[in-house]
Design a protein around this nucleic acid. Sequence first.
DNA 1: TTGAAAGCGCTACCAT
DNA 2: ATGGTAGCGCTTTCAA
Lengths: 332, 332
Amino acid sequence: MVTIREVARVAGVSVATASRALNGLANVNVETRGRIEAAAARLDYVPHSGARSLTRRRSDTIGVILPDLFGEFFSEIIRGIDMVVHDAGKILLLGNMHGSPQETQQAIRAMRGRVDGLLVMPPNSDAATLGLTGGWRIPTVLLNARPYDGGLPFVTVDNYAGARLVTEHLVARGATRIVHVAGPQDNNDARERERGFRDVVREALGDTTPLVVPGDFRDGAGRSAARSLLARQSVFDAVFSANDLMAVELMAELRDAGIVLGSQVLVAGFDDIPLARYVTPQLTTVHSDITRVGIDGARLLLRILDGEDPGEGGRLVIAPTLAVRGSTGPAE
Amino acid sequence: MVTIREVARVAGVSVATASRALNGLANVNVETRGRIEAAAARLDYVPHSGARSLTRRRSDTIGVILPDLFGEFFSEIIRGIDMVVHDAGKILLLGNMHGSPQETQQAIRAMRGRVDGLLVMPPNSDAATLGLTGGWRIPTVLLNARPYDGGLPFVTVDNYAGARLVTEHLVARGATRIVHVAGPQDNNDARERERGFRDVVREALGDTTPLVVPGDFRDGAGRSAARSLLARQSVFDAVFSANDLMAVELMAELRDAGIVLGSQVLVAGFDDIPLARYVTPQLTTVHSDITRVGIDGARLLLRILDGEDPGEGGRLVIAPTLAVRGSTGPAE
DNA sequence: TTGAAAGCGCTACCAT
DNA sequence: ATGGTAGCGCTTTCAA
């Protein structure tokens, strides 16, 4: 492997001069620079970024720690992050977190000395548990975490607001017995969505004990939720599912049971996955710009790495919007 | 920032001993080890992986260079890679390649000294152009590239075979005038699919100049393809779209024009995206286990990094399968 | 403008 | 079992 030493030797200069020339510093004789560049090209010299990071004390690398995410969600958020990180001439180090908080904490520690900053999305544990607030600190921005968790800057979709939006919409459309299909109870997003649902149902309908069917966000959960509702012959005129995937399955199951969607029973979801527009009737849902979470999170982190103190600007809440479609009634 | 030096000082030992203890080597007195671990814990010492990589001459990091991919595709392949890489105690460095081959080559060079090996998916350029075959070499496995490109090991989905499969299916279902909606011409996958289509159409129908409508794999292309077919009043009884996304859009457009899908016109796609099962009629398509590409590619690379010469085992072709659904006729 | 040399934080070799 | 020390490949003072 050819090192800068060898380039210097071939060009007949010191490594110091070679380094300066290769990094485009001004104080190098133009003719000397030529010799060095020629030598580097001829030897096919490629700088060793690892060593470079060590001396410069920066890696130009951003660490990203995400949970196990479903298709679109994962790629969209990465796309957002990559867009801004790439433009800043940096690169991404990926650390998925399957498994326990301990394992995740391990993954985070392993990033020490490889990254300048961290983007962490902790779906079911808080910053302290992950060792983000300990003695060893690395600039970190939380994505979709509990706001104000550990005092760390964050970018988050307002799940609570989104849930309120959609529940209020169901009420406005005349629903009075709304069922909620919940997500995993250890998931922050799921809890916030359920909270928004409960609050609106209580405020608008005076219902303090609405029916909540458990779910887990995954394949199959919507189906079982529908069956369970059907089996116990629950009385309901609307369903708010904590995510679209479950909503879509539930719709299929209800329709098979002879229920007319969009009139007899209104259905709404959360996430606005591409599928939502393709089912019949199209699914009313909460749209949140997830790419935005990546973009804003990365931008925020970059600013912090530049030494800026974001202050209140380090607490970003992204407001979701309601996408009204056929599953909650005919277009107005 | 606390270094191993400090831990050693606090524990009253040399850095050498500290290093040995912290790395779990055997030749350390149990009591000494205790002191060192206690010191490390108290100081909240986290090893600097960058420095570690430099001395050990390995980073335990795998570089992944992918093009701009659509949702599912991207996440599935990353998931596959991550599964095996994670199990091997390694981590992923992500380098998306938007833009020119030059820019990509730059991204690849930037990985020198940060990764032990590379997984590269070059959709529209060959290994040589990307500098993968030059003087500076890093162990590399190609994903979904032209087979035998630069003599590098590869894992690839057999697009040609998949296209043959689906075209033969259309012929078997009685189609005689099959239109192909192609993908981008600079895309390897797209070219292979078109080639498979042309070969079967020629062999089975004797048609050497089938109608091929240009497309680009993206949103909108299926719609325009359909409109263009309708506008010029082409005669056709089947469409093979180079990917599902375009197929789904095309189906919607044809149906709006009053065409009965699955009988009047058969439609088939390629990729088997989740959406394919949710449209009506469900879309017949070619299913390729894309996660498998990630898994096998990563495994292959790991074996190479272990010093193994995979020989012929370093040339993996993954055979796609046909998923027959309603868009090519009633279930048999 | 150039070079010598001191690290960056760690591991591994060679002594003891 | 432990310590001293020479690097890993590079950047960056400090002098010249």
